[in-house]
Nucleic acid binder design. Structure first.
Length: 794
DNA sequence: AAGTTGGAAGTTTTT
DNA sequence: CTTCCAACTT
């Protein structure tokens, strides 16, 4: 319906737009507030407006478009490329923009240009270390609570110097102590957390009027998408850049504000008219996305929120099918029936996999759904599985890169100084840290001075020296192509070898992931001929999110949280587990504001659907390894039930008349019911008994014979036997080993003893195995090493 | 120093 | 049911 060919779009930007859309597109100078309901063509308006500005002669570099996610920015870029080919307008997330500005003016806030961006888990570790520096007791508050409070403070532009606790607040008192220590550690490491990116830029703009003016001048036209989700520091930044040239256009929908927990301040949008009195307000209330049935359900639900400007959702779309409300007997039924429904539609060519999306409140709900999809063989993608950049091996390699880029990054050093194992243990690190703290140097510099650290033992000094040498060999490659740097790194550090040598299945997988990162690096090399590729790569890795991984093109069913669903649309949507404690979530129920946010979350989910929508819950949900009774969400009572189709399949849905479009034979769901209880479903097939008999025989054949009939006494005896055996095995007297002797290790094979040290129980052998260049150390009194051939025999 | 085993704890949403 | 950490073993 929308050809979007470059020519037709360029011919007249205002063609095929409604009057209010035209009003927003044509608005040129002065503040503009676009209140856009779901599916009202908001992105279309924004991109057309940018194209319009460009057409009017505004240079591309004077326009700044800030989005909430990288994906939204990408999409905007894509559409802009069609509307205004050859022009490049900077589009990106707030965090990316801040990082960019901060690189340029890092010194103004006490950072260096090569600062590192720590993710949540890294900054959490720094906080823990900071707390250890103080005498804070964690008996009444958790690290997470403290972190949250610091984050809140930063989002409200309260710096570590300014934070003052109100009298009598336990948490506040703790934060007052921990916040400055944490911030000092971050600065020492030349690192920032996500909140710092915003806080530092806002501070910088406030304290440097000249710079603020210059940037205000540079970015004449600013567009902010999803303005309802901005927090105070983001607001301050945008405001600071729109004083001399208040050409600020924001789009948003207060009803879709779902990031209050992250400091998003609804007042930013509700008070926009107050902050910018000259503002032009454009309302986009016509919905082009959903059927009127879907829209009515959304409309009725959101009307229950009290903190809102009343607004009607309008559409000329046909009513479509009724919205389905389903209560399943169990979460398993829910998953399997939904998948069966989808499989059926695909099998009959009514839909493609990519037409479907499943939304849930919390990530852990994805597992059950995933299993159902896998069993049915329906292709699916999860937005956020175990995210790539959170995996240990990826974080390890990135830590090496971080340290090369920013040698002060102690967090990175701690992560990799003994990975792969270099015989640098807890004790050594503790002494190193003491030295570093005392002299105010980085851990790397402390390691450099290992010789002068009195508390360190010789082997530790040698090991540390080796690490520093390795690092110094790598660091000249900091400006080399990424791929080259990483290849060297993996070789020099021994990381690749370490994984290759391991026999663990897990490590083979890790190696594959590392290779994938290497591929990313090569791609990055060819795509962005940046003058600082390392820094750019690390920044990208830090600021990617899970929704960014979503593949629009592939033909798969999408599974995601309700939060991740924002900004997307699908022909068929299933929202699952709409139950008390899940949605609204347990932790939102006391606070009425949070409860309203939960309602908005469901609203966002509902309004993603174009044609079909099913909302479901289950009577029993499998959580934490056991069945738990679930109560339907109170939100369901707020929906216009008389206009919906309400199903409550009792025990086996295929008996229920309402499920007649699912025949027994193509339905994995029914198959499982059969497994559970064949009799109840009326199976009187005489072959059944035989089949069961056969199954039992099969099981008996594959089962180890005696294991199941062992008595407790026998088990105990077995355990004792095992112990004594081990004692005897280790009883080869340590004196029997000599240097040069060939030995066998049951796991690693043959090797030669190159060195012996220590006495009696502490006598250790250094063994060079034939299969690997690495030396291994054995405490002979406990080892499973067996002499194969004495040195004399050779 | 490194690996292994056991127990305890914890699971909202994300840049 | 996992996943993470602490104590224990080798």
């Amino acid at each position: 319906m929308d050809p979007n060919s470059p020519d037709s779009e360029n011919h007249d930007l205002l063609e095929r737009l409604t009057p209010s859309q035209v009003e927003a597109v044509q608005h040129r100078d002065g503040p503009l507030l676009i209140l856009a309901g779901p599916g009202s063509g908001k992105t279309r308006v924004v991109t057309h407006r940018i194209a319009f500005l460009l057409r009017q002669g505004v240079p591309a570099w004077q326009i700044l478009a800030l989005t909430f996610t990288n994906k939204a920015a990408e999409e905007m870029n894509l559409r802009l490329a069609r509307l205004a080919p050859g022009e490049s307008v900077w589009t990106g997330t707030f965090h990316r923009f801040c990082a960019r500005m901060l690189r340029r003016h890092a010194r103004l806030v006490g950072l260096e240009e090569n600062f590192s961006i720590y993710d949540t888990s890294d900054s959490r570790k720094v906080l823990r270390a900071a707390i250890d520096d103080t005498d804070i007791s964690l008996s009444h508050v958790t690290v997470d609570q403290i972190a949250n409070e610091i984050s809140n403070a930063k989002n409200n532009l309260v710096t570590s110097n300014q934070f003052v606790s109100r009298a009598g607040q336990t948490l506040g008192g703790v934060v007052e102590v921990a916040y400055p220590v944490y911030q000092k550690r971050m600065l020492q490491a030349n690192a920032v957390d996500f909140d710092d990116l915003l806080l530092h830029l806002a501070t910088m703009l406030r304290e440097n009027p000249e710079l603020r003016k210059a940037m205000d001048d540079r970015y004449r036209y600013i567009i902010v998408d999803e303005y309802q989700d901005t927090n105070f520091s983001q607001y301050a930044i945008v405001r600071a850049l729109s004083r001399d040239h208040p050409n600020l256009a924001v789009t948003g929908d207060p009803d879709q504000s779902i990031y209050g927990w992250r400091g998003a301040n609804l007042r930013n949008i509700l008070d926009f008219e107050h902050d910018f009195p000259q503002v032009r307000v454009v309302r986009l209330e016509q919905n082009y996305r959903s059927t009127s049935n879907i829209l009515r359900v959304a409309d009725q639900l959101i009307a229950y929120n009290t903190q809102r400007k009343p607004k009607q959702l309008l559409t000329d779309n046909p009513p479509g099918n009724p919205v389905r409300l389903v209560r399943y007997p169990s979460s398993r039924d829910e998953a399997e029936h939904i998948v069966a429904q989808i499989a059926d539609d695909i099998a009959h060519d009514r839909r493609r996999p990519r037409d479907f999306a499943l939304f849930y409140r919390i990530n852990s709900l994805s597992r059950a759904l995933e299993n159902a999809f896998r069993n049915a063989g329906v292709p699916y993608q999860i937005i956020k599985g175990l995210e790539f950049y959170q995996r240990k091996e990826i974080k390890d390699v990135l830590a090496y890169l971080h340290l090369i880029n920013n040698p002060k990054s102690d967090m990175s050093l701690l992560r990799i100084i003994n990975v792969p194992p270099r015989r640098i243990g807890k004790a050594t690190i503790k002494r190193l840290d003491e030295y570093a703290q005392r002299y105010g140097v980085s851990l790397l510099d402390a390691a450099r001075e290992a010789k002068t650290i009195k508390t360190l033992r010789k082997p530790a000094v040698v090991a540390l020296h080796g690490f520093v040498e390795m690092f110094d060999a790598l660091s000249p490659l900091a400006t080399a192509p990424l791929h080259e740097l990483m290849e060297q790194l993996l070789a020099e550090s021994g990381y690749r070898n370490w994984l290759e040598e391991s026999e663990l299945e897990e490590d083979a997988e890790r190696l594959a992931n590392v290779e994938e990162l290497l591929t990313d690096a090569s791609e990055f090399d060819t795509q962005s001929p940046d003058d600082a590729p390392l820094e750019a790569f690390l920044e990208q890795a830090a600021l990617v999110s899970d929704t960014d991984e979503w593949e629009v093109e592939t033909n798969k069913v999408s599974l995601m949280t309700l939060h991740a669903a924002k900004g997307l649309e699908f022909p068929c949507v299933f929202i699952v587990a709409v139950e008390q404690g899940m949605l609204p979530h347990e932790r939102s129920k006391e606070d009425p504001d949070q409860l309203e946010e939960e309602r908005r979350l469901l609203f966002v989910g509902i309004t993603r659907a174009e044609e079909e929508l099913q909302i479901s819950n289950a009577a029993y949900r499998f959580m934490r390894g056991n069945q738990e009774m679930a109560i339907p969400s109170p939100f369901l009572m707020e929906l216009p039930r008389e206009e919906m189709e309400v199903f409550e399949p009792k025990s086996s849905p295929h008996i229920d008349e309402t499920w007649d479009d699912h025949t027994d034979d193509d339905d994995t769901y029914v198959q499982d019911i059969v497994d559970d209880d064949p009799e109840e479903l009326g199976f009187d097939d005489p072959l059944m008994d035989e089949a069961i008999q056969h199954d039992i025989e099969q099981q008996q054949m594959t089962r180890p014979a005696a294991a199941s009939v062992m008595t407790a006494d026998q088990l105990l005896n077995n355990a004792l036997d095992g112990d004594s055996e081990a004692d005897e095995r280790g009883a080869i007297p340590p004196e029997d080993f000599v240097e040069g002797m060939i030995v066998n290790d049951p796991e690693r094979g043959l090797g030669r003893i190159v060195k012996l040290s220590g006495k009696e129980k502490k006598r250790t052998a250094t063994v060079q195995f034939f299969t690997s260049p690495r030396l291994r150390h054995y405490v002979l009194a406990y080892s499973s090493l067996v002499p194969v051939q004495s040195a004399d025999d050779t």
